[in-house]
Design a protein around this nucleic acid. Structure first.
Length: 566
RNA sequence: GCGUCUGUAGCUCAGUUGGAUAGAGCAUUAGCUUCCGAAGCUAAAGGUCAGAAGUUCGAAUCUUCUCAGGCGCUCCA
């Protein structure tokens, strides 16, 4: 509709007879004529600021220009426009016909797929990586926000028609993995930690993992028990282990497999998340791939050797200091493997999306600069930084410490408040906003809890539908004249724009806010007006059916149930 | 110190990307069940959009500075 009005204005301006010329090229330029939805019904349905824009060029009073435009447009009698008003300082307000507004109801009801309109014209091959928590234990609540956001983004991109490939990056060769393996080994052989310089993992799951591996490895581990117990530093312990425990590397892989399959994948299942691929960091080491990349960096004169380590010249890109790629002991840094990983992705995909915790923000420019340095187009990368979420219970902030198994697992939160509430609360706020997540609110079953409120609207409508013979539906677009009905129609007419802006700018909270508003307007309607009424051919029932359809599709976007009964 | 994100009602947050009188929920106060689900509805009250300057017809939104808070600035992962 706003495009129609835009065209009307453009056509008018092109043949307008103002004294001083308006450049026709300017007029046809994208964005020159702006037509937007109003926020206040007193201002009609759409408004344009064109008169104020032109006043500068024409050196005329915007009110006069507006009146001029109004006079000419009114004379032309466009059927969809009821009236035009000019308000100071120069807004041109368009009021569209009520019946035109009501036509959205049949549009929605008859549409097989209301998301079809959001299909992109430029389909892309998109890689999206999220969560990627170290496989050292079950996921905890701190991982929740990035997880839900990543999943939602994938849902949105798929609806837009892109090919979406989701990936979990498994760090399976770092120091943390050795510490994890050692924690399991100590549990198997019943040994107290003999070194003091490094903490080990203590959660309950460690002994469960140990039990699974006990029968297979116990004997060979007991052989080296005494030599292990005499080591009082982490380094020497690990060295002995690697030397005496021949199947250490296989054992380490088994530990990771068990954690992923028995914990992480199950946690993800609870929230309906499935990854296209689990990428293991070790794949980057295979065939010296990382070293080829490092060679490439060196050939571009972007690295040098100092104190036995290889450094990337990040100061060249405004960083405070250069950063290490390969440590003096020969170990690769995360930075090095990340460059390799991202170059793999960039080779294969049109666009790549990373979702990281905001604590990694310092890392963003370093990585993109390195990739730019070796010749990649970094416009193809987008990195979303997620602020931390705090959990509150009974007004008390809950501890999120990961040390000594003290953390709250994501699973326990799902068990307590359910996946619907988690899906909703984690994306209901802008990601760059710190999030306070109140468990009491998520548990409440009334208006405090927006999820329930929206779901309740859906269920109420279902009840109405069940009482009506749907064959009798005969929608009459001139019947819905109550102000509350007009409110609802305005909102329904907004769904397309709201969803499309939210999807294009990847801001899911715009959609949840919209769904809430729509539910609110519906509940008010329901309480004040009898919806089932034969005298009006069930036009009101048609209206609520359309509302329900939007609610349902919106909720499904976030994997939230749209219950028919509660 | 440098970088980065944030600052909107007592609390938790929206604000359609620069539009008109800044909006919700909670909490507070006062109401609404012969009738489609009260898990609901109707009101009242609550604001120096952290502060200052600038850009322009017009700023919560853009720029600069100041203040406050979160996070990051290892040959850590």
């Amino acid at each position: 509709m706003n495009i129609e009005i835009k065209n009307i204005i453009e056509a008018y301006l092109l043949e307008a007879t103002f004294d001083e010329g308006i450049n026709p090229i300017e007029i046809s330029k994208e964005g020159f004529i702006e037509v937007q939805k109003t926020t206040n019904e007193l201002h009609g349905d759409y408004y344009s600021n064109i008169a104020m824009k032109l006043s500068k060029v024409l050196k005329k009073n915007p009110m006069d220009i507006g009146e001029h435009i109004k006079k000419d447009l009114t004379g032309k009698k466009y059927p969809q426009i009821k009236k035009i008003e000019i308000k100071k300082p120069g807004f041109i307000n368009f009021f569209i016909e009520d019946s035109k507004r009501a036509s959205i109801v049949t549009d929605i009801i008859q549409s097989k797929d209301i998301f079809k309109k959001f299909k992109t014209k430029t389909k892309k091959n998109i890689h999206i990586e999220f969560v990627s928590a170290n496989p050292t234990g079950p996921l905890h609540v701190g991982h929740g926000r990035g997880l839900i956001f990543g999943k939602t983004l994938s849902n949105i991109l798929r609806i837009q028609g892109h090919d979406v490939f989701t990936e979990y990056y498994v760090n399976n060769i770092g120091k943390q993995i050795d510490i994890l393996s050692i924690s399991v080994i100590l549990s198997i052989v019943g040994l107290k930690k003999p070194f003091d310089d490094v903490d080990i993992y203590k959660g309950k799951y460690i002994s469960i993992v140990a039990d699974k591996l006990k029968s297979q490895y116990r004997d060979s581990l007991l052989v080296c028990k005494s030599s292990l117990s005499s080591n009082n530093t982490y380094e020497s312990f690990l060295n002995i282990l690697r030397k005496d425990f021949k199947s250490y590397l296989i054992f380490r892989d088994s530990v990771i497999d068990i954690i992923i399959n028995n914990y992480i994948k199950k946690d993800l299942d609870d929230l309906n998340v499935e990854f296209s691929n689990w990428f293991h960091e070790s794949e980057l080491i295979k065939d010296d791939f990382v070293y080829q990349i490092l060679e490439n960096i060196k050939s571009k004169d972007l690295s040098y050797v100092k104190d036995g380590a290889v450094w990337f010249k990040s100061t060249k890109y405004g960083d405070d200091k250069d950063r290490v790629l390969v440590r003096a002991n020969g170990a690769l840094t995360y930075f090095a493997t990340d460059i390799a990983y991202h170059s793999l992705k960039l080779d294969k995909y049109d666009y790549i999306i990373n979702i990281w915790g905001s604590d990694h923000h310092g890392y963003v420019s370093r990585l993109t600069n390195a990739l730019k340095g070796i010749g990649y187009d970094t416009n193809k990368i987008s990195i979303h930084l997620i602020q931390f979420a705090n959990l509150y219970r009974d007004g008390q902030k809950m501890s999120m410490s990961t040390r000594s198994g003290e953390f709250i697992t994501l699973k326990s939160l799902v068990d307590e408040i359910g996946s619907d509430a988690i899906n909703f609360f984690y994306i209901n706020k802008k990601i760059e906003q710190h999030l306070d997540f109140d468990i009491n609110t998520a548990l409440s079953k009334d208006k405090d809890n927006p999820v329930y409120y929206i779901q309740y609207a859906h269920a109420r409508i279902e009840k109405i539908i069940s009482k009506v013979n749907l064959k009798d539906l005969n929608f009459d677009d001139t019947k819905l004249i109550d102000p509350k009905e007009q409110d609802l129609l305005r909102l329904l007419n907004n769904y397309e724009e709201t969803f499309s802006v939210a999807m294009n700018t990847l801001q899911p909270q715009m959609i949840t806010n919209y769904l809430y508003k729509l539910s609110q307007s519906f509940h008010s309607y329901y309480a004040n007006i009898k919806i089932i009424d034969d005298e009006i051919n069930h036009s009101r029932v048609s209206l609520v059916i359309a509302i329900q359809k939007v609610l349902k599709n919106g909720l499904n976007l976030f994997d939230i149930n749209a219950p028919e009964d509660m």
